[in-house]
Design a protein around this nucleic acid. Structure first.
Lengths: 214, 214
DNA sequence: CTCAGTTAGAAACGATTGTTTGAATCTTCG
DNA sequence: CGAAGATTCAAACAATCGTTTCTAACTGAG
């Protein structure tokens, strides 16, 4: 089998190492030596370490946003025909399906989620700005649809609940390996990612439908 | 006012910088220069950067675990007298109260939560091991009480739901500043930490009581 | 006061970081 | 083939990192 080209080998290796140790803790020498690529190749092909980090995200987020937009188009068209509102469950289902779909093509969902978690928690100010400016639109569109699906919730309440849920998902899936080991050791059952998504569904729906705070 | 001693000045400065930028991204020179302390002071008083990181956590977690154990003692004693089980709401309430209590003495809860979030997300393998070995007991005790309060949940399901909730809390509170700015800008209301805890309560309870996945 | 022990300070250590350089090699196409 | 451009490579760059060393200053007990 032919070796993938240098750019691909760098991206493949970088996303795994970034997901394992974080950005600052992963040196370009770690990446290039494991990828069997010359050190200077990163700066040659990507310009800088910052740009490499952004490129790693783009390789996930570009196809994700495209598919998600398409899925929302279809969902809206279907409900526009019969004049019904899109129910919350369908919106969450669509998002979950798209999230599961995209990384399946290449790497594991775990890496994708770890990266998302790092984007929120690590310093890397440039990353948050980059993601917001490049991919903020699809999130805005989604939240607007959620707004129409949950008209009983005050706007601020819905905002916070969406972030509670985002925290659950990112935290759980990005720490999946460690948690899975504990769960397997203590309860003897090995969960897959789709098991977890199945477990998340009723919890997420209940969270969104919780009574308003007194 | 008398300057706090060197050790305290280092810890005060380190916890803020760690919370802002992470561990790897915060150099000892950042800390010592901002704390107006000699560079060598960190290695003299703490031995290494690793030990400094652990000391920062210990200053929060030592009083937290002590108070939390005491609060659980009291809760158990009260319910042992009338033979009733401790309801889930009381357990969550007790934990929330203790979490809010401890950092109020010194710094903001935000820093405490940012640090907890970093402990989970950052590489720093030594940190997870340290926290687990030093403070694992109180968490084990708490989960056992939650088990008795939710006998209808399978053990594995309860394990995962607790971590879903942990994710919500840590993610939201550790990203509080950024989220608060957005919420204030979009919805014109400035939330406090206790507002957020108030909002979290019904969501968390509903999450734990969600129907089992099909 | 004196002296032992603790703390503070300036300077340097070796190691590692991201990046740049310039020559060597490979690829492409007229 | 052969020249032009793209890519690879080894080496070095300056900057920064955590840590160590050694001396100076301070502190409290006899």
């Amino acid at each position: 089998m032919a070796q993938p080209d240098t750019v691909t080998r760098i991206l493949d290796t970088a996303e795994v190492l970034f997901a394992e140790r974080g950005f600052a803790e992963t040196s370009l020498r770690n990446i290039t030596s494991k990828a069997k690529v010359n050190l200077a190749a990163v700066n040659y092909h990507f310009g800088s370490k910052k740009s490499l980090i952004q490129a790693v995200f783009a390789r996930y987020l570009d196809p994700f946003t495209e598919r998600f937009h398409r899925a929302l188009d279809e969902l809206e068209a279907r409900h526009e025909r019969d004049g019904s509102e899109i129910p919350l469950e369908e919106l969450l289902e669509t998002m979950a399906r798209t999230v599961l779909e995209v990384p399946a093509e290449r790497n594991s969902l775990k890496v994708f989620m770890r990266l998302l978690g790092l984007a929120y928690s690590q310093a890397q100010g440039h990353l948050r700005g980059y993601i917001q400016s490049e991919y903020g639109d699809v999130f805005t569109r989604f939240t607007e649809l959620v707004r129409r699906a949950t008209p009983e919730l005050p706007d601020a309440e819905r905002f916070w609940r969406l972030h509670f849920i985002l925290g659950s998902v990112i935290f759980t899936l990005s720490g999946l390996d460690a948690l899975r080991d504990i769960a397997e050791h203590d309860y003897g059952e090995r969960v897959s990612v789709s098991d977890l998504v199945l477990r998340l569904r009723p919890v997420v729906v209940s969270a969104m439908q919780a009574p308003l705070p007194g």
